[in-house]
Each structure stands twice: as structure tokens, then as C-alpha cells.
Simulated assay, not measured.
Amino acid sequence: MTTQAMDDARRWLGERGVRQVGDGWVSAEAPDQPLTAAQVAHSWAGEVFAADDLDAAGQVRLAFGLLDLLDEYWVTCEIRFAHQDPAGPLPVDALWDGYRRRLEAERDAETLTYSLWVDWFEDRATVETAFGEVLGNDIDRVVAEGSDALVRRARRVLACSGPVPWPVKENAYDTAVRLPVLHPALFKGLLAGYHDVYGALEPAAALALLERMRLPADTPHVEELRLVLAAGQANHRQDPGVWDSAVRARS
């Protein structure tokens, strides 16, 4: 995320008669009718990929600038639509560098992690590539260097990695557990992997991983997860009663 990207997006909108006024937006066509960021995103994010004065990489960078500016999930949808369009795919370096850089930034990244979770990670056609690009391919470097930015990205990806199939994320999890600062996010990923409708753990391997974690004493559901994994449960949907029993046992 850069100020330049936001400035470029603001300028691009301005050329189309859309400008920021206070906390909202107005268009030249109806200056007395305030627009929300969501309305601007739905009206204009898709148009980025029809901008004939930009090459494909430039379009991707402009789209991410709009995301920085508007912080609206719909912008990520349009990015994904363009990637999967018959005219796609988008340049992968620009696409995934856009995700990685924003996942590493100090600014809140909830829109990005939601996009990863519900779009890229829950889709079996895209999950392997997406997870690899945002964490799996360089998890060794993340753990070895341990910089604030890399750790921030790893935390965010691990926490939303519940839907990622176990074979796709197993190596990343096994590597991440070596860095204690990642343990809370890794636990969130395990817990989500148990409960998410698309998730599934490998119980023995997940339990072994859980036993290696050092978590704050007040972390909720650690014992419940330990009990269901010890019972060989891969996912909540396998037998919801097992989790319910574990909760009662902890009461």
C-alpha cells in the first residue's frame, strides 16, 4: 500500500467526475447526492480493467489503489473477476504482490483477509496458488527473518487459512510453529479449519502441532480442540456432538 497508489486512484476517479468530499464522495452528475465508498466501488472498480491507457499490470495497481482508497470488499471481487475473465488471467506478479504488500502494512487488512478466506481459499480451483503466493512459498524466509512486516503478513494469512486443505498448508503450518509469535494466529487457523464448512484437519498432525504451541493461558477453546482432535475428528460437520461434548466437559 502506498500513498502514490491512493493518489493515482483518486486522480483516476476525479477524471471521471467522482471526487472525495469529507468522509464521502460525490459525482459531477449529481453533486447534491452523497455517495458511499461502497457505491463508488460498485460503480467504478470494474471499469479499471477497461482502462485502455493502462497495461494489465497498471490496471492491477490502479485497482489496488482503489482498494486502499475505498477499503471496500467489492474492489477485491472485481480484481478476482478480472483474473478469471476470458481476457485474463491478470499478471500474477502484480496481483499477488498487491496482496502481499498490503498484508504486510500496518493498516488494517480485514478486507483483504476476508477476500482471501471467502474467495481465494474456499475455491478449490484457486486455493493452492493463492495460499502459496501469500505465504506458503516463502514461509521459510518469514520465519528465518522474522521482520515485523513479514510476521504481520504471516499472522493475517494463518488466521484466515481455515478453508485451505491440509495438504496445501501443512508445510507452512509446520514451519510457522517454529516462531512462537505466530502461535496465536496459527491456533486461529487450526480452530477455523475445524469449524469452517470448507475446512478439514488431519487430526493426528493437527494435534501434534497444537501440542507444540505456547499460547496465552486465556486462549479460548484450546482444550476443546485438543479433545476433538484426540478423538480423531477432522471437522465439526463430521459429528457436531463431539465438539458439544468437549464444551460440556470444559464447563
Rank of each mutant, 00 (worst) to 15 (best):
S43Q: 14
A56K: 13
Q39F: 01
V48C: 05
D23M: 04
F49D: 07
A38E: 02
D52I: 07
P34C: 05
A41N: 01
E29Y: 03
G24A: 10
V75T: 05
F49M: 12
L69K: 12
A50P: 02
W74S: 11
V18P: 00
T76N: 09
V60H: 07
A63E: 11
V40P: 02
W25A: 11
A56W: 14
Q20K: 15
D55T: 12
V75H: 01
Q33F: 04
D53N: 14
A56I: 08
A51G: 04
C77N: 08
G65A: 11
W25V: 05
G46W: 09
S43K: 13
H42Y: 06
A37N: 09
D32E: 15
W25L: 06
L69W: 09
V18R: 00
D55R: 09
L67A: 09
A50G: 05
S43C: 06
L62T: 06
E47Y: 05
G46I: 02
A30V: 12
G58V: 03
V60Q: 09
L70R: 10
D32V: 12
A38D: 02
A57E: 14
L62C: 06
A45S: 15
P31Y: 11
G58H: 13
D32P: 03
A37L: 04
E47H: 11
D55W: 10
D53H: 12
R19W: 09
Q33S: 14
W25P: 06
V21Y: 02
V21G: 01
D53R: 05
P34T: 04
A30M: 07
V18G: 00
Y73H: 14
W44E: 01
E72K: 11
L67D: 10
E29T: 14
R19C: 02
L70D: 13
A41K: 01
L35E: 08
T76F: 12
T36P: 01
A28G: 13
